[in-house]
Design a protein around this nucleic acid. Sequence first.
DNA 1: CGATAAAATGATCAGTGTTCAATAATTAAA
DNA 2: TTTAATTATTGAACACTGATCATTTTATCG
Lengths: 196, 196
Amino acid sequence: MGRRSDHSRAELREMIITEGHRQMQEVGFARFSAREVAKRIGYSIGTLYNVFGNYDGMILAINGRTLDSWRGFLDSQLAKAGPDADRLKCAIDAYFEFAIAHRHAWAALYDFRLPEEVPLPEFYQDKITGIMDLVVREVALVLPPDRQDEAVPLARSLLATVHGHCAFTLNGTFALLGETDPLAAALQRVNEALAR
Amino acid sequence: MGRRSDHSRAELREMIITEGHRQMQEVGFARFSAREVAKRIGYSIGTLYNVFGNYDGMILAINGRTLDSWRGFLDSQLAKAGPDADRLKCAIDAYFEFAIAHRHAWAALYDFRLPEEVPLPEFYQDKITGIMDLVVREVALVLPPDRQDEAVPLARSLLATVHGHCAFTLNGTFALLGETDPLAAALQRVNEALAR
DNA sequence: CGATAAAATGATCAGTGTTCAATAATTAAA
DNA sequence: TTTAATTATTGAACACTGATCATTTTATCG
């Protein structure tokens, strides 16, 4: 067949990402199947490769969608909290809440890695640095004037700290070790770094 | 065939784990192949399944070997440091050093997950809690007498903190964000929590 | 209506984990 | 020693996977 009037190229791309993202969330990266996605949207496997070039490109697009969704949730929760709330606590809550609610899609962000010699595409880098910028902004808001220069390195480190707690929550390590309130632990570590 | 005089069951098990661990370190979890392991030790694929029951059992045995090796390295580095050194810094250094030197095997510890309803086998749980106990001991050594009750929850949280920094180092997130000394950042977070 | 370009296909290939009847080697019994 | 029972090992077969690309279909345009 050729161009199908029912779907433009952009629409098709969108369909694949949407269904792929759904699949990723349902079965996780290990059981994800491009063929299954193709079947569900009514296209052949070859078409997915025409659109994304290769498997990695498709996964990056799907994981990019997860990043967008995560970023959107963080933004909305911060907006809801307003300027006088404990915004960092709010951000950490949102971080955990999203990861738990979308555990498979969230885990896929880390389960999938490009070959070592292949750099992350710019569009994907931008999504990550975008989330980073958000954290930097919130950290700067909490830091006293004489420590503003710490904002960037501190934000990086606190992101890693929260990530570590979130990862141990989702992969069962904390459950095994008897930790029942990982969110509180993460928040404590963050506040210690800010108080110093 | 039947029992082969050249290898006892235990020796065969050992061969599979050793070669599997080597493979895991060389190509990583995503490209790991049980067939390839079988080929390299000169047994058929079926034999691996006879020994380990299923794929997951084999991976757990291999990852268990990684945990043993990691634990051994931590122990030896702490022993080398002696009682008067900054033992927690030493432990964190060793944590990073091992993960970097064995990035693929280390990553496989987290890339592989059992089905959600399947609990971790006891032998594997013990290896993890063993590492945890080590950290608790070191944390307790640094904590003042009036804070000894914090040792366990703090050790859990600091383990997660270091893990987060280590994960961001190995998956490229820190590089993308411009962090050039993740180890120092992790150490700083840990020291803040201990100083409070 | 052609002719041209674009889009979509799916058989094909090489690989994976998994199963299990068949077979071979060892050991135990007669 | 010969036979029976047990144990270890095999590898073809199955149902999948990502990947390729010659072929076919559709749309567009002169």
